[in-house]
Design a protein around this nucleic acid. Structure first.
Lengths: 146, 146
DNA sequence: AATGAAATATACTCCCT
DNA sequence: AGGGAGTATATTTCATT
């Protein structure tokens, strides 16, 4: 992970569909050199995947919420299996603290939210926060070495 | 947003660097047709951006945390401006509830976390949860129409 | 590990339906 | 809104440094 790799990642974080030739122009390499470096970063797991960011409101999901869950004793394992089948849940992390789980969910409306909460409360105690707006959305990761 | 657009989005959500020709093969369209549909989805804002997912641990950020903040009276506006300059904060949302703000942050180590919290507590009361693992990471959004 | 060159694949533009 | 043809550009492979 030298300066050139970070320069390549800056470009890909801005626009992951940019061509390797264009990346090459910006960082001062030929396209085969960029392709080779990107391939290696994919192979060693620095690059996990390439994703498209969708405006959930425009795809019919008007509501977004953060839900924390404090699983009932013995119910965490069952929850971890089941949550993967909930298409509303776009992100879900295990965390430290009073709550074991935090989720980011997208929903059609309040009825949809209510139905989801009804399912979740069989696994634990939940707390729901509606997302009002994005202050920062997927900020690029920058090198921590100066 | 018909079935074809959703089929295209499924492919791009799996791998945002796939070629339009390859998308075309999977959904049964020619590449100019895919390009045209994608361009329209970009123009009307359904597609916001294309991002690369990095393994933060392998980029030197060993710790990830969720931090909520309940801003002190009159301090929210200042926080909203300042937080944009914190490179540790990869996501930040305004939310309803007792806390006004929830953030996802990446950190080098506990020292780095402590320094960030020191900065944050000038704006409000914080609660920190260390992320232990990902249960679901950027799950694809699927059509809510059956 | 990068370059330059050749072959293949893809993207883009335009016109037709 | 999509297909097809033609051109430009990009990717991939490989030999070379």
């Amino acid at each position: 992970m030298d300066k050139l790799n970070w320069a390549i990642l800056q470009e890909l974080q801005k626009n992951a569909r940019i061509s390797f030739s264009e990346v090459g122009r910006k960082v001062g390499l030929t396209s085969p050199a960029v392709a080779e470096r990107v391939r290696k970063m994919e192979d060693n797991g620095v690059i996990e995947s390439y994703k498209v960011n969708l405006a959930h409101q425009k795809t019919g999901y008007q509501l977004r919420a953060i839900i924390t869950l404090r699983a009932f004793t013995g119910r965490l394992k069952a929850f971890l299996e089941t949550v993967k089948t909930y298409k509303e849940v776009v992100n879900c992390y295990r965390i430290t603290g009073n709550e074991n789980i935090i989720m980011e969910v997208i929903l059609k409306d309040q009825v949809h939210l209510e139905k989801l909460i009804d399912k979740l409360i069989t696994y634990g105690e939940t707390r729901t926060h509606i997302v009002l707006s994005d202050v920062i959305k997927d900020a690029p990761i920058v090198s921590n070495v100066e």
